[in-house]
Design a protein around this nucleic acid. Structure first.
Lengths: 250, 250
DNA sequence: CCCCCCTTTTGACAGAGGACAAGGACAGTC
DNA sequence: GACTGTCCTTGTCCTCTGTCAAAAGGGGGG
């Protein structure tokens, strides 16, 4: 039974509704890649008893920047954004998460950034207290989480170079190449055609640009024959080498 | 016996020279705050046998971006920068590390950014293989490392907001406030006077600005009576409230 | 099938910050 | 104390990107 995720339930008072059916994990699409992938069957069953499956609709915010960190989750399906913002409303997307990624801030007091669904999404949700306790007593899970966090940190720092030192053209090109890799499935090569899970405004928020600059740069690249834009959301990479050159500043 | 860190030894072939004197850890200034802080005495002694103490001079690079990740270390004393750069030499500082911080990329193939000493520094150095093995068999160490990595990730993402969405004035103000907190000792409040461990160029590289813009903004704030700059490296915060306003964009 | 709303694109203009250049200050050396 | 190299500051100009405004395009509902 899939429960529908009610926004009101994101409040600290949300009552966790444990998932009864222990067979869920067996069918889980992302089990192998998620942090629970290397747990023994009985351990995973125990973890499963702590969590619940929820759906979130595109646009719904699962956690708010600065709130008490009361939940964590694995992403089963869909795409979500992590975002931070200034007091006067300027927004920066600090991460985009995909199926098998982990969201939330374990072992901490408050959530440092908001988490919002970009598409309809399915999550495997845990209360933070229950998850923290489980992770502390299951080193294998902690280790997977550590590896994933180290990878996230590397990615965040690579993005800092982009935000601080690249110009608009380089940012767009780097972004498109990154998407072409991240949207590819397990072990598959980069995609030459894909649907962006982000609107132009959201692309701007990832890159620290305005929507107009994003639009102009993409149109320029289209005119240069480097990419094609058959409709609003899909991107075809026509000349990957040249796109890589743009990303490097050449 | 303190060994001097030879740059050539950063090469993969570097022979680890174990530290014989197990009492080192007892006297270690940062033991309580470092990731080894919660280990039992015998465990810490075992870890100690895997590592060696080294000195690095200001300006020396301990690891190079893209190199095989062969070493990790705890910072005992001094300040170091983590930096990434584009093919054509633009640089972005993606982190500044202080005593008790951990550096290097455990459980990974290559180092994603360079590590360079800003001041003379003392490190407690491990080969990555030895450290990885130890961490895998000592969950408590892994857990401390996880907490630290989660904190680093939060900081990196907060900095992404600064890099992507703040203007020069806000960046400088945020940076100065951050420094005033990070340079304060254990549990102490923020400092109203401190010596920057960074040159103007390095401040620019942290904030994604040019050295001229950094200089101009700091002079402007000095003229506005918000800060004083008694010499090149020291900063006095005269009006913290106003500085906080600058940081927020007000 | 048309209409309406929202997203995206395009245009014109302005301003923040970068690039280049020169002058000034400071620390270490002789 | 003069010298010298490095780091920092200041000045001028220019460009990239942001801002504001309007037009164009697309998708969903009636």
């Amino acid at each position: 039974m899939m429960m529908h995720f009610d926004l009101a339930q994101t409040a600290p008072a949300a009552a966790p509704v444990p998932c009864q059916d222990a067979s869920y994990c067996q069918q889980c699409d992302v089990r192998a890649r998620a942090i629970c992938g290397t747990l023994e069957d009985d351990e995973r069953a125990a973890l499963n008893r702590l969590g619940r499956r929820v759906m979130v609709q595109a646009g719904q915010t699962v956690m708010w920047e600065g709130d008490d960190a009361t939940i964590v989750a694995n992403v089963i399906e869909g795409t979500l954004k992590l975002s931070a913002s200034t007091g006067d409303g300027r927004e920066q997307i600090v991460g985009v998460v995909y199926p098998s990624d982990f969201i939330g801030r374990p072992f901490g007091r408050s959530t440092p950034h908001s988490v919002t669904a970009l598409t309809d999404a399915r999550l495997c949700l845990f209360t933070r207290g229950a998850f923290d306790g489980f992770a502390r007593t299951h080193p294998e899970l902690g280790h997977r989480l550590l590896q994933r966090t180290l990878d996230d940190l590397d990615r965040a720092r690579a993005w800092m170079l982009l935000l601080g030192r690249k110009n608009a053209r380089e940012k767009i090109a780097t972004f498109l190449l990154d998407m072409s890799h991240r949207l590819a499935g397990e072990g598959a090569g980069p995609l030459d055609s894909f649907a962006l899970p982000l609107s132009r405004q959201q692309v701007a928020d990832v890159l620290g640009l305005t929507i107009e600059t994003v639009s102009r740069q993409m149109t320029d690249m289209k005119r240069a024959g480097i990419i094609a834009l058959p409709n609003r959301r899909t991107v075809d990479i026509l000349d990957r080498d040249q796109l890589a050159c743009c990303a490097e500043g050449a």
